[in-house]
Each structure stands twice: as C-alpha cells, then as structure tokens.
Amino acid sequence: MESSDRAVDDKEKENDGEKSGFLGKVKDFIHDVGDKIEEAVGFGKPTADVTAVHIPFIDLKKADLVIDLLVTNPNPIPIPLVDINYLVESDGRKLISGLIPDAGTIHAHGSETVKVPVSLIYDDIKSTYNDIKSGSIIPYKIKVDLIVDVPVIGNITLPLEKKGEIPVPYKPSVDLEKIKFETFSFEEASATLHLKVDNKNDFDLGLNSLEYEVWLAEVSIGSAQLSKSAKIDKNGQNVVGLPISFRPKDFGSALWDMIRGRGTGYTMKGSLDVDTPFGPMKLPFSREGGNTRLKQAEDNDDEVLTFNRFRSGW
C-alpha cells in the first residue's frame, strides 16, 4: 500500500515538474517574442525636458506661469500622455500643485512642446507663509511627473525639475510733490506735475508709460496716458515730471482758498506700465486727501502748488 502511494506521489511530482517546465518555457517564449517585436519594430522609452518657464502675466494679485515640456517620441506609432502631475514649491514648501489628465498625444518619431499653465495667487501664498512678504523675490522649484503610455512597455513616468525665481510685487508709492507753473491765468494754466515714485521692491522698475488723473477741490485738472521712460532702482526713488494744462477758473472759490493759503483737497489715481526682470507689469496707484496752497518757489520766481504727503486710498 505504501509503495502504491509513493508511486502516485512520484507521478504527481513528475507531472507538476512537467507543467512548471512547460509554463516556464511558454513565458520565456512570450518574453522572447516581445523582445523580438520591440527590437524589430523599434519601441523605446521617450524623453522629456523642461525647456523654459514663461511668465506671460504678472500683477499685484497673481503670476501666471507656463511650463514648456519638450517630449520626444522615438517610436513608430503615436504615444498618449496619460497624466501630468506638477508641483511648485519654494524652499521645500508647496505653493501649488495639480493634475492635467489626458494631456494629448505625441506623434510618431516626433517631438512636441507641451505647455502646462500654472497660476500663483499671492494672497494665498502670503496667508499660508507669513515670512513671504510683498516686494521680495522667492526661489521656486517646479517638479513634473509626465506619465506616458508606451506600447509593449506600458505606462512609464518621466520625472522633471526646473528651478528659478519669481517676485511677489509691492504696490508703488506715488507722491505728487508739487505743480510747477509755466503760465498761469484764470483762463488757462500750463504746469508740470512732479511725481515722486517710490519702488519698494527688491528688483528694478523700468517705467515705460503711465496713466493718471488729478483732482483739486473735486475738479479734475487733467488726465492723460503718457510715454515716459525712467529707471527706478530697487528700493529706490525717482521724480518724474509730467506736463499738464487746465482752466483755474473752473475751481471757483477753491482757487481763492489756495491763493489765500487756506488749502484745498486733492486726489490722484492712475497706473504705471513698467518692465521688470520677470516681464512687464501694470501697477495701479491711488492717493487722496491732503491740502494744497499756492506759494513762491524757493529756487526762482515761478509759482508752485505744493502738497503735503498723500494718504493712501485703495
């Protein structure tokens, strides 16, 4: 009886060995066929690189970034981009992250630039990290996981990184120091506005143009959009002169108050178009309040309208 059982066990082991050997041979055969197909057809791993990071728009509220990913497909058929995972961080702290599904297809034996748009909202960043202040420049690192579906190989992940810097802009401070008159009569006056622009950012501003409107005693004395070039160094100041003309008689009794030294209120609003190392910006400003009076200039006999410091109005 024992010899009979032993014979059965030996037979089962022999059958298991044959099955194992057969399945192993089948797997090896399939693997070899796959390798032969891959070798014959030319399937391979695609490559990718972060070629550039653009800042097409930036202002006091947000910065829009566009990440350029150059993806090269060496295969004879198109490959789909399954997902794009991205993370933007500064000093190891997350600023923003996201996922772009079904990001397109890369043509056979071709290269294409895939653009990944990202928006950084400054209020969100500053409320999360108190040490990030307006006017500063912060480092960033962009991490991208590009997931592609390659025939025979399957899904693969291409990790990418790019480092750079981005500003957190500070609103400009614009003070109207004085109005210097070239001609003055009750019917018409021509003058120059002397604007002191205070740059509180850690980067230079190149002034290209500005829009402005100025009110005295709730009467507009003029508005314009002018091309004006000036450089304002980081954490520095510059005075810009702007020509203007108006009709003093439109001020009514407020003009007599200024002449008698009683003063009158004023308001100024506008925006600066500037170039920065990070791209162009349009920076608004607004000032209101204070008093004016007419007096003789100290350096010559021209009459000037002087102003005390404005109070911010946002």
Results as ranks from 00 to 15, higher is better:
Leu272Pro: 08
Gly236Ile: 11
Asn235Phe: 09
Gln296Asp: 09
Tyr129Phe: 13
Lys13Gln: 09
Thr264Met: 06
Gly265Ala: 02
Lys13Ala: 14
Glu303Cys: 05
Phe186Thr: 15
Asn73Gln: 10
Tyr266Leu: 11
Pro151Lys: 11
Pro169Phe: 06
Arg6Asp: 07
Arg262Tyr: 05
Phe285Met: 04
Ile84Phe: 03
Arg247Ala: 13
Ile55Tyr: 06
Asn308Tyr: 12
Trp314Ala: 15
Asp145Asn: 03
Arg309Val: 03
Asn199Ala: 03
Ile55Ser: 07
Asp124Pro: 00
Lys94Ser: 10
Asp302Thr: 00
Ile67Cys: 02
Glu218Tyr: 11
Arg311Ala: 14
Phe310Asn: 09
Thr276Ile: 10
Pro169Thr: 09
Lys62Glu: 11
Thr51Ser: 11
Ile244Ser: 08
Gly222Phe: 04
Asn75Val: 08
Leu294Trp: 14
Leu95Asp: 02
Gly265Thr: 14
Arg309Thr: 02
Pro284Ala: 07
Pro169Leu: 03
Leu305Lys: 03
Pro277Asp: 02
Pro76Ala: 07
Pro248Ala: 02
Asn75Ser: 06
Leu255Gly: 06
Gly21Arg: 15
Ser136Phe: 02
Arg293Phe: 14
Met268Gln: 08
Gln225Arg: 13
Ile142Cys: 00
Leu87Ile: 15
Leu255Pro: 02
Phe22Cys: 10
Ser3Glu: 14
Asp35Ser: 13
Val304Asn: 12
Trp314Glu: 15
Ile232Thr: 11
Gly24Asp: 04
Gly104His: 09
Phe43Gln: 01
Ile100His: 04
Pro76Asp: 13
Ser245Arg: 10
Thr306Val: 14
Ile58Pro: 04
Gly265Glu: 10
Leu283Gly: 02
Lys27Phe: 13
Met258Gly: 07
Asp49Glu: 07
Lys141Cys: 02
Ser223Asp: 09
Gly261His: 06
Pro74Glu: 13
Ile67Phe: 08
Asp131Thr: 03
Gly252Val: 02
Arg262Gly: 06
Leu207Val: 05
Asp257Gln: 14
Glu38Pro: 00
Ser111Asp: 11
Ile156Gln: 01
Leu216Asn: 05
Ser209Trp: 00
Asn308Asp: 15
Val71Arg: 04
Ile77Arg: 00
Pro172Arg: 00
Thr183Leu: 11
Gly42Ile: 01
Arg309Gly: 06
Ile58Ala: 12
Asn235Leu: 08
Ala191Ser: 15
Val304Arg: 12
Leu216Cys: 10
Val50Gly: 01
Glu12Leu: 07
Gln296Tyr: 08
Gly42Phe: 09
Phe285Lys: 10
Asp233Ala: 15
Gly265Gln: 08
Val174Tyr: 14
